[in-house]
Design a binder for these strands. Structure first.
Lengths: 228, 228
DNA sequence: AACAACAATATTGTTCGACAATCTTGTTCG
DNA sequence: CGAACAAGATTGTCGAACAATATTGTTGTT
């Protein structure tokens, strides 16, 4: 954790990203500067720079004169993000399936945990498995820009918001679909990988629609809202 | 320009974005804090927050201990971005073509300049026309998340880098393709809009590949590079 | 008890000055 | 000409300060 000169801000950013992933910070939670500077041992200036980065990434929001809070997606946000993710992950899957065989073989090793038949011990275990799996596809796809864009898709937030409502059946179904994607990639079949990705994300999308509505922030009525 | 409490940073961000668009700042140029604080009349802290936002957006880069500079894309960066843009803009075009008729009609009015048959007076005139046109499609698509992601696609940088090598023929060709996209949207035909978008961006991509190589930064040899 | 109005407190927005770490440039020496 | 070093420029980080705004607490009234 002791980062060197010029990279201290990275540590803060990582702390927050990780904190949201593991539920230490939850969507809607306000992030008070005084508290965080005390806890992390950094100056306000550095903390505020980190906040700005994360806000641009879409993980937190900064409301003028009210400061930073972990972003809480509306259902509309989530659906728009799923729609985008569908396209980008299909692209990534195609690229991944076209990667050199050695790289694909390594990928299969890296995600071997998806073949485990034991029921996942906890929702959070599945959440991190899921994040890892999707990240591995983007990595194998080998496009720096895709990896970068993937951070804007807010998988952490979606998982954090729906995780209390996750059922064992939904998880089991997802794992099956992960295997289908992985197999298509292993076989070097871009068309199948594309299709399997779309099927997986389409189903995940439908699942989200059926969630209790208080999982999401009430969406603004306006036509289009941007996030600074 | 006198923004109010809590929104001063927005002005700086806007200034930089605009500056890159109009060529006031060019890819590769270093942005010295002392100079910019003097010119913009803001404190270093605020300026650095703005830098962090823009770096997360991908418009500038921050190199530890060397500060901020306008990002200069490698050919690989540009191609990866085109590949992604192809998918996202096709999505946006489909959505746009499915928008209510009133909105589509308004869109056609907003982009009526594309029907002008006069040759564009300057490369920069075409550049701003192009940016406007593509932004209008994303706006009509009505997805806040898509609009947000569009900022990561770095159209400004690509244009800034290739603009010295733009020819009248290439511009004329692009304008034709813009018209095809607009017509498909006007007719409410998502399939045609999708196809026209893909054709346009595919051709633009091919054009970029043929550019003189010194237009782009020499790409790093590594497998994948991320931009913080 | 509910509520309005106000005061007290907390929190953010912004600036300034300081100093160490690092990079850049200029100069001198071999 | 190039290495080595010194001088200067620039960034990274901190802390203190104060105004603007938001939040909470208190009081008095109905």
């Amino acid at each position: 954790m002791p980062r060197q000169h010029g990279e201290r801000g990275d540590g803060i950013v990582e702390h927050l990203r990780d904190g949201v992933r593991r539920g230490r910070y939850v969507p809607g939670q306000r992030l008070i500067e005084a508290d965080m500077t005390a806890e992390l041992g950094v100056s306000r200036g550095l903390l505020r720079e980190a906040f700005r980065r994360l806000a641009a990434e879409g993980l937190i929001e900064i409301v003028p004169n009210r400061g930073a809070l972990v972003r809480r997606l509306s259902l509309q946000d989530a659906l728009e993000l799923f729609e985008i993710r569908l396209e980008l992950e299909a692209l990534a899957a195609r690229r991944a399936a076209s990667a050199p065989e050695a790289a694909r073989r390594q990928f299969i090793k890296d995600v071997s945990y998806i073949w485990d038949n034991q029921p996942r011990v906890s929702a959070s275990a599945y959440i991190s498995e899921n994040q890892n799996f999707h990240a591995a596809i983007f990595t194998l796809a080998g496009s720096g820009q895709l990896i970068q864009l993937n951070t804007q898709l807010q998988l952490s937030l979606i998982m954090a918001q729906i995780s209390p409502s996750l059922t064992a059946e939904v998880i089991a179904q997802s794992i099956q679909e992960h295997r289908a994607i992985a197999e298509a990639i292993e076989n070097g079949d871009p068309v199948a990988a594309d299709a399997a990705s779309r099927a997986h994300l389409g189903r995940a999308r439908d699942m989200v629609v059926k969630m209790p509505s208080d999982v999401f922030r009430q969406s603004l009525h306006g036509d289009v809202e941007t996030v600074s």
